[in-house]
């Protein structure tokens, strides 16, 4: 699993990356009450806002950690947004993206680097 400074995580299987927000981010938001995930087929450049996550008092855009095309949005989140709090780095994933260049993922932080980054905040 790889991480961004914007608190997204990426996990790659073949050329498909599963993307979500980290536990740190989910905790900072508080109770998640609404998630908007992208439709399949949407083309993303790195840094594009591709999803929205909301708590009662806050709303955040989620940015694409790598370029690619959306294969699937996690439709289950619209009915059960609390999954993002309960299991942010598992069943609370936001989207699966067919990655344009898998090497882009390797360039992101690993767990240790991300933990160090969090400690520096």
């Amino acid at each position: 699993m790889r991480f961004t400074k914007d608190h997204e995580w990426v996990s790659v299987d073949g050329d498909v990356a599963t993307v979500g927000i980290t536990k740190y981010a989910a905790d900072a938001l508080g109770d998640v009450v609404f998630v908007e995930v992208p439709d399949a087929g949407k083309a993303l450049s790195k840094g594009d806002s591709f999803a929205v996550v909301e708590s009662v008092k806050a709303a955040s855009d989620v940015y694409a950690p790598v370029a690619g095309e959306v294969v699937e949005g996690n439709a289950a989140l619209s009915a059960a947004p609390e999954t993002v709090n309960a299991d942010p780095e598992g069943s609370g994933w936001f989207a699966k993206i067919r990655v344009a260049n898998v090497a882009d993922v390797d360039a992101l932080m690993d767990r240790a680097a991300y933990d160090a980054y969090l400690a520096s905040l």
């Binding site: 609404f34 708590s55 009662v56 008092k57 806050a58 709303a59």
Partner: peptide
């Protein structure tokens, strides 16, 4: 008051 993330005091320019 609910669904306030639509509103200016949270979403500001969006």
């Amino acid at each position: 008051l609910t669904l306030s993330t639509r509103e200016q005091h949270i979403r500001r320019d969006k």
